[in-house]
């Protein structure tokens, strides 16, 4: 499919740097970015198949009993015209119920949950839909940050149908008081764009007397066809 990509940015996107976090003042470019025409390199992109997804799966509990509120997360990956993006690679990872990641750099003294995998991977279907089972993650403190706690969140990595339609973002949970003071969510200037990063509770997604349900839709760059000019 031929897609059109507008320049990226504007108030719906955060500044590249995160204040008071991971020293992004020395990892973000200081020079102006160079304008790049859209060439075959940017409008083409990797196509993923079942072999790429492997056996990572979409149930982060592996059918085990794990600590935390069992939750089903479902949504649709769309382009800027609201059309589904089929076969998008969706990868997600998160902390466990105590806010701990299974990663060597996470040295905080909080318990691991041996039955919780913390990551999943899948391709969207023909309607751009994805769905996975997990638990609501715990909040965790940002190291050396004067008591900044990250609100519960799930990291999402998405690859649409071009090198240009690549996004890594985070999903937040509705109603959490930490959302309004989080340095990463609040780095998005536009209030409506921040709201779109917060999932909506949705009983139709959950499982009766078993799992909470959340709906989270994601928009990737790209128009399906040339927009009207003039």
């Amino acid at each position: 499919m031929t897609r059109v990509y507008e320049p990226f940015g504007g108030p719906s996107q955060p500044d590249l740097r995160t204040k008071r976090y991971m020293r992004t003042n020395v990892t973000a470019p200081a020079e102006a970015l160079i304008e790049l025409p859209r060439t075959a390199t940017e409008t083409s992109g990797p196509v993923f198949g079942a072999a790429d997804v492997g056996d990572v799966g979409v149930d982060l509990t592996n059918g085990n009993t794990v600590l935390g509120s069992l939750s089903v997360i479902a949504g649709q990956v769309l382009d800027e015209d609201g059309r589904p993006v089929a076969n998008a690679l969706v990868e997600f990872w998160q902390a466990n119920a105590s806010g701990k990641y299974p990663h060597e750099v996470d040295t905080r003294p909080a318990p691991q949950d041996p039955h919780f995998t913390g990551a999943g991977r899948m391709l969207t279907d023909a309607e751009g839909r994805y769905k996975f089972t997990t638990i609501k993650p715990g909040a965790y403190p940002v190291p050396s940050s004067n008591n900044w706690w990250r609100p519960p969140h799930i990291h999402f990595s998405l690859y649409g149908d071009a090198f240009a339609s690549r996004l890594i973002t985070q999903m937040y949970f509705p109603g959490d008081p930490l959302n309004s003071i989080d340095g990463i969510l609040q780095a998005v200037p536009d209030a409506a764009a921040r709201t779109r990063l917060i999932a909506q509770q949705d009983e139709s997604v959950g499982i009766h007397e078993h799992a909470l349900g959340y709906r989270f839709d994601i928009v990737l760059r790209g128009h399906s066809e040339t927009p009207m000019v003039g």
Binding site: G10, E80, W93, H103, I168, A193
Partner: peptide, 21 residues
């Protein structure tokens, strides 16, 4: 028409999730 979802950092704790062998 909807602008793309906002980007957010991938954080430091992701290598177990993304890395194929």
């Amino acid at each position: 028409m909807t602008r793309p979802s906002a980007g957010q950092t991938l954080g430091p704790f992701y290598n177990y999730a993304l890395m194929g062998a």
